[in-house]
Structures are given as C-alpha cells and as structure tokens.
C-alpha cells in the first residue's frame, strides 16, 4: 500500500530573525501577496462590517484580510478578477451614495453601502460585469471562511472564532486504549 506524502510545511522553527535588519523599501510597497495596500484597507473594512468586533474579536482582529489575500494567491486564484472589479465597484457605489470612498465612511454608512451591494441594486459601472450581489456573496463567504475556518489558512488568528463558540481547540481527546477506571 502506498501513501501519498503530504507536503508538510513546518513552521515552528522558520527563521525570521533578520526581519528588522534590512532597510525598508518604499513605504507603499505592498506587504500582501495579491492586494495593494489600498485594496487591503478596503477589504479589511468590508470584512469588519461582515463580522464586526464586539465583546469578541471581529474579522479585522482575526486577520481575515490575510486569509483572503493568501487564498487569492493560491486556491482561490480564480476569483482574482472578481475582486479587482468588485473593489472598484464598492468605491463607485460608495461615492454614488455618500460622495466618498468606502474606507473613510462612518460605520453606519458602510453598512448602507453593503446592503445596497447585497440587494443587487448598487450603483456603479463595474456592476455591469458582475452583479453586486454576486460579489457581495463571494466576499461574505470568504470572510466567513477566514473567520470560522481553521487558522492554518491565514485567518482565525488566535483561534478567535473557536474561542467565541467555546470550542476546545485543539480538541482535548485521547485514544481509546484504556478502559475507564473510575
């Protein structure tokens, strides 16, 4: 019987000690795999609306932006164009509704913009390419996955959602070797 070896990426001893030794390149160089820094601020703001912080961390604290960025450079690569267009569309809708970019809106205004997207009736040229509702569903699902999925994919930092749900993680569980003794 032959088993596939998984590509086991070890993280525990990876060296990052030189992190602070090298000079910085331009302040606008993107720290993200796919997004520009500006894109990332926008996506971060959208995800925080989808799962806002309250007594428990929200999407921002849980690093959902890192999940989406990482996956758009990997398994969700096929959705890149939807994001490129969709992010332009979000700001178009935002300007049409409130005259300003999404990230600078008050939280209540941001909610209104996203509700407009969700309804499929958002204003913006870009939404001729894909419906605003379809893009909203996409980013909503990715936010949920980044927040509620396993931390190994870049989101759910500090296992925030598992803690919120009271789930032991990693689960404390042994094998059945021994009979119950007490």
């Amino acid at each position: 019987m032959k088993y596939n070896r998984r590509r086991f990426v070890k993280t525990v001893a990876a060296g990052v000690g030189g992190a602070f030794l090298l000079p910085a390149r331009g302040a606008d160089a993107s720290v993200w795999r796919f997004f520009t820094n500006a894109d990332a601020r926008l996506v971060d703001a959208i995800t925080e609306q989808i799962i806002p912080a309250d007594q428990d961390p929200g999407a921002r604290d849980a690093g959902v932006i890192n999940f989406i960025d990482k996956q758009l450079a990997g398994r969700l690569r096929r959705h890149r164009q939807a994001y490129r267009d969709g992010l332009i569309g979000v700001d178009e809708t935002s300007r049409a509704m409130f005259g300003r970019e999404f990230v600078v809106l008050a939280p209540e205004q941001q909610t209104e913009v996203l509700k407009a997207l969700e309804s499929g009736k958002a204003k913006g040229e870009t939404w001729r390419k894909q419906s605003s509702a379809a893009f909203f569903r996409l980013i909503r699902d990715h936010t949920m996955a980044g927040f509620y999925g396993g931390p190994q994919h870049g989101g759910n930092r500090g296992y925030a959602s598992y803690k919120m749900l009271g789930l032991d993680y990693p689960q404390i569980i042994g094998q059945n070797r021994y009979r119950r003794r007490s």
């Binding site: 590509r7 086991f8 990426v9 070890k10 993280t11 525990v12 001893a13 990876a14 060296g15 990052v16 992190a19 602070f20 090298l22 000079p23 910085a24 390149r25 331009g26 160089a29 993107s30 720290v31 795999r33 890192n66 990482k70 190994q152 870049g154």
Partner: peptide, 17 residues
C-alpha cells in the same frame, strides 16, 4: 521589500523545513 515581519506562513512557504 518591506520592513514588517513577513509572517509565519509566508516564511514557511518559502523555507519549508
């Protein structure tokens, strides 16, 4: 090209042990 730490997963991808 940045001065922030690149993050655990990014390093692990580049330097799998």
């Amino acid at each position: 090209g940045k001065d922030a730490a690149p993050g655990w997963d990014r390093v692990a991808e580049a330097i799998p042990l």
